[in-house]
Structures are given as C-alpha cells and as structure tokens.
Write a protein that binds this DNA or RNA. Structure first.
Length: 279
DNA sequence: GATAATGTTCGATC
DNA sequence: AGATCGAACATTAT
C-alpha cells in the first residue's frame, strides 16, 4: 500500500476522521512499531489535539496542539483505520488512538515494518523517520535531480527509489514513471540525458498526482475501512504485467520483468530504450 | 513448502 | 570517504 499516493490518501482520510479531535487514551499493542520508549509515546500523545495533517514522501506528519508531531511510516504493510465503536480490531492492530469524537484511529500492520514516532516539532529534523528524506516528489526540483543522478552509476530505476534524492516514489510508480518517459529502467543514472531528466521530473509529478486522484493503487484484495481502496491498479501500464502486450498505441512489444537491486522491475523493451532521446 | 510482496537500514565489500 | 550490493527485518498469501 505505501507509496506517495497511498500515503496521501491516508492523510486525507485521517484528516477527515480525526481533524481537531483530542486523544483520550492510547493503546500500544506492539511496542516494536513505536520509535523510542512506548511509555513516553503514550504520555506524550494522551490529551493532545490533532491539529494538522501533513506528509513528506511516504511519511505522515500529524501536528499536535503542543508543538509536537506524530510521525507515521507504513513501510510495506502498514495502514490506518478509522473505526467506529462497533468495529473490531484486526489481529494486526499495533497502536490504537481513542479520540473524543468516538472514533478510534488504528495503526494496523501485518509485517510490523511500519513505525510511529512522536517528536518535538523543533527537532523534526532529528526524527528517525525523516532522516534521509528529501523533498516531496509531487514537486520535483529538476536541477537537484539532475545533479544527484549525474553522480551515480546505478540504474535510473534504482536511483528513483532513493528517498533522500526525492521522497515518495516506490517500486510500482518507479516502473510506471519510466514507462511514461520511454526510458529503459536499466539505464545508468549518469547516462540519462537532460531532456530525459526533464521528462522524469515531469512524469514523476504527473503520474503520482494521477495516483493520488485515483486514491492510490490497491493490489490484491485489501479491505476498505478509512483508507478505502484505490483504483490506480486499473491504470498501471507495466507493473505486474510481465508477458502481456504493451498498452502504448501502435506498440507491438511485450512487457518484460527484470530484477534490479532485488526489486521486480517492469518495462516494454520495444518502446523504453536506453538513450532514447540521445542524439 | 517455496516464493514474492507498494520499504528501509545495516554491514561488508569495493 | 563514498558508492554499491545483498542480507536482514516479519508475516501473509499464493
């Protein structure tokens, strides 16, 4: 679930369900998902009002009324639910925030990679969850991207996943973005031409914004609660489509799958080329 | 039972 | 010092 569009969808749904509510009681069911001592987490959060709902890359930033913030990173399987009193927790519920509006906000995470962290606003820069997180991918800085990518020899697809260069792109959208750029994902980062760099910046913003519009991608049958399920899976051009025909009009290619840096990567070998715009 | 999964981090090696 | 690679983390679903 968790790339920029999915986390942005969580942010919006949480704002809807919990805006201006006060935390009356906190249950930490699994201390592993809390950064730092669980006791401090509970005492620091109890009695606070949730005043702002932000996000940077894949990190949720919930501002509290005493100048602190609750950060959340869902990693692979984390998600937030807004439960009404009759709803039951799943067996993967890790932290429950009871609110004075009757809602329970639940952080639910099958694999337990996700993390919640309470930080003083002034030291957000020291926050574990924001360390190594660059500027948000919905607003790409072409100059910055060009400089970072020029220094590296790794495949451009792997470079796009580096959160300190640009934050929010994950494994699905990386393949999708490069498809829309017509660029081979294996192309060394430093070989990407200026015109191609510009395309990457443009398509990153466009594809992710589109993902947000469709409320993210829901692969397999995740249930709807507060996060709802997204619809961008119906708009994927390459991810998960190995062996299927390329959807680009007039292209007779077949979608290939390669492993880059241990992650599955999909592309059309016909219309995504190395140095495509090279002159 | 083996395999893969929308992510990050750490240690080893270049 | 800096870049890169693979293992590790933990658990389910297929």
């Amino acid at each position: 679930m968790p790339e920029l569009p999915e986390v942005e969808t969580m942010r919006r749904d949480l704002a809807q369900a919990a805006s201006k509510a006060t935390v009356t009681h906190v249950e930490v069911l699994d201390e592993k998902v809390v950064v730092g001592p669980a006791q401090e987490f509970v005492t620091g959060l109890t009695g606070r009002r949730l005043t702002a709902f932000g996000r940077r890359g894949k990190v949720l930033i919930i501002g509290l009324d005493n100048d602190t913030a609750l950060l959340g990173h869902p990693r692979m399987t984390g998600r937030f639910f807004a439960l009404q009193s009759k709803d039951d927790l799943t067996r993967f519920a890790r932290v429950v925030l009871h609110l004075d509006n009757g809602t329970r906000v639940v952080f639910d995470d099958i694999r337990r990679f996700g993390r919640l962290e309470l930080v003083a606003d002034a030291v957000q820069g020291d926050a574990a969850l924001l360390r190594n997180i660059g500027h948000d991918a919905l607003h790409c800085d072409l100059d910055h991207l060009s400089k970072c990518f020029a220094k590296r020899s790794i495949p451009i697809k792997v470079a796009l996943l580096d959160q300190k260069v640009v934050a929010g792109i994950g494994n699905i959208y990386a393949s999708e973005i490069l498809f829309h750029c017509g660029l081979d994902p294996r192309t060394p980062s430093c070989c990407v031409k200026p015109a191609e760099m510009a395309a990457i910046a443009r398509e990153t913003e466009r594809v992710l914004a589109e993902g947000v519009q469709y409320r993210g991608t829901t692969i397999s049958d995740y249930r709807t609660m507060s996060g709802g399920k997204g619809n961008y899976q119906d708009h994927l051009r390459v991810y998960g489509r190995e062996g299927q025909p390329c959807l680009r009009e007039g292209c007779e290619g077949t979608i290939q799958k390669v492993i880059l840096s241990t992650r599955s990567t999909y592309y059309c070998s016909r219309c995504q080329r190395k140095g495509r715009t090279r002159k």
